[in-house]
Design a protein around this nucleic acid. Structure first.
Length: 480
DNA sequence: TGAAATGTTGGGGCG
DNA sequence: ACGCCCCAACATTTC
């Protein structure tokens, strides 16, 4: 029996359950050292943003509690990953290190280099897939190339969806501290020192326990109505599991398993009806991870190279109005303020606000991606990249160049009574539903009654959508 | 996972 | 009874 300890390195897999690297270590029966290394400088252009760091702090606390319950603790360090692994392996005489792999280009390069070095030095390294339903290299077109269109990609995935298995983690103990050389999580300085996080604290519960509870609450209570409600930012129709998924507090395999076991109809409980519409959205997540794996440059550059020559604007005043939710378009402003207050935005509204930045203001999608990166608690390089490139029209399976969201029309369709706007743009809360998505067209008496003075307590529109739409169409058509 | 412009159809009002 | 207009509803095309 091998008594040399094994190091389990955690990154975006901050959970105990269905954790392939951890399961492998448990199965080896060797003593386990759970380790987290904070090394943002190894993330290239995309070190975690402020909202993400806030979440990470609490998620690490949660993971540490899980290990303390099992008689040990999470060892936390910061610095150069390879040096720290070398040092700890030397100290505790570990001959084996395991972790779950990532799709982020910088992370993958770092991991590959670390694996090469450690292997040369006589330390066994194993990487596992802990964050995806399918290995990105296994899904390909008939000609052996990566898919670039969602529907055929997802069809290929669904052909083997029944082979997706989530593996519960057996009970285990950390019998003793192999080393006590750990920093405190607080020392990582992940929390910002201003009051901005109050909204995050009242909205979210990071950590594996909450992730699993939220998953069951959603699947049991809301997944049946998901197809009807998923586009409604004014209602509680979506799972809000994205930050849990990003940090790996729960795996997509666990969600698929729970969804497949869900029996939807109380009238016909014998009929199993998995919530396919919801599982399909996990498919979009899977697709984004797959795309970043196969096209790593898309984190910074358009997948379709002709977009490199697009005549983007650099209007800092417009950018600032967008960030602050002061564009004069109620749905756009509501979304941007929800983002700032809670670190999250409904996906329908992400599309609308992104389309507004890219197509109405002609600001580069990368600028929007950076803002989302810093403010979203679910900031995920693959999801963020795909979403922005999709909206801009320069990505895989992208919106055609002429597809431009009308923020008023979207508001009328998906925030039918204006309740979402009222919640996040309180200065418009007295405006009747008929006018709330386009208050500039409301009769003056209506605005007076609502206490709204455009240009004073709610901004005038920073651009006319009809004008902006035609400008974008001309610019985008001219590019071809 | 769009929206506007344009075309078509059919019912109702009305002279 | 008939023709005409209007317009809502739906379909098609265009950007």
């Amino acid at each position: 029996m091998n008594t040399n300890p094994v190091i389990v390195m955690f990154r975006q897999d901050l959970r105990i359950q269905d954790n392939p690297a951890l399961n492998n270590a448990i199965a080896s029966t060797a003593p386990i050292l759970p380790l987290y290394i904070w090394s943002p400088f190894e993330e290239g252009n995309w070190p975690p943003g402020a909202a993400s760091r806030w979440w990470l702090h609490h998620s690490l606390e949660s993971l540490n509690r899980s290990f303390m319950d099992r008689g040990g603790r999470l060892i936390v360090r910061q610095g150069d990953t390879l040096s720290i692994l070398r040092e700890i392996a030397g100290t505790i005489n570990a001959k084996s290190i395991v972790w779950n792999s990532r799709v982020e280009p910088a992370g993958r390069n770092t991991d590959a280099a670390i694996q090469r070095s450690l292997t040369k030095e006589g330390i066994e390294v194993h990487q596992f897939n802990g964050s995806l339903l399918f290995d990105p290299e296994q899904i390909q077109t008939a000609s052996g190339k990566p898919f670039q269109v969602f529907t055929p990609f997802w069809k290929a995935c669904m052909a083997s969806i029944n082979s997706v298995v989530s593996t519960p983690t057996p009970e285990f103990k950390l019998s003793h501290f192999l080393t006590n050389d750990s920093e405190s999580i607080a020392n990582l300085n992940l929390l910002p020192n201003h009051a901005w996080t109050q909204g995050l604290e009242s909205t979210w519960h990071p950590g594996e326990t909450a992730a699993i509870a939220n998953m069951h609450t959603f699947i049991d209570n809301a997944s049946d109505s998901y197809p009807e409600l998923r586009d409604r930012p004014d209602l509680e129709g979506v799972s809000r599991l994205s930050p849990h998924l990003h940090f790996g507090e729960i795996s997509p395999k666990q969600i698929v398993k729970a969804a497949m076991e869900h029996t939807s109809s109380s009238l016909f409980p014998e009929i199993e009806s998995p919530p396919w519409a919801y599982i399909r959205q996990l498919g979009w997540r899977e697709f984004s991870q797959y795309l970043l794996f196969h096209f790593p440059h898309t984190q910074d550059l358009p997948l379709r190279p002709e977009f490199s020559s697009f005549p983007w604007e650099t209007d800092t005043a417009s950018m600032r109005a967008w960030q602050q939710g002061k564009t004069g378009y109620p749905l756009v402003d509501a979304g941007m303020r929800q983002l700032w207050k809670t670190g999250w935005m409904h996906n329908r509204v992400r599309m609308v606000t992104a389309s507004f930045l890219v197509k109405d203001l002609l600001i580069p999608w990368q600028s929007g991606a950076k803002w989302f990166w810093d403010t979203l608690v679910d900031a995920d390089l693959a999801n963020n990249t795909m979403g922005w490139q999709w909206t801009a029209g320069c990505g895989a399976d992208a919106a055609p160049y002429f597809r431009i969201f009308n923020p008023v029309r979207q508001g009328e369709r998906f925030d039918t009574e204006g309740d979402y706007v009222r919640r996040w743009v309180p200065e418009l809360s007295g405006v009747p539903s008929e006018w709330i998505q386009h208050p500039w067209e409301a009769p003056l008496s209506v605005l007076q009654q609502a206490g709204v003075v455009l240009g004073e307590n709610y901004p005038d529109r920073i651009v006319d959508h009809n004008f902006a739409r035609n400008r974008a169409l001309a610019a985008l058509a001219g590019m071809k």
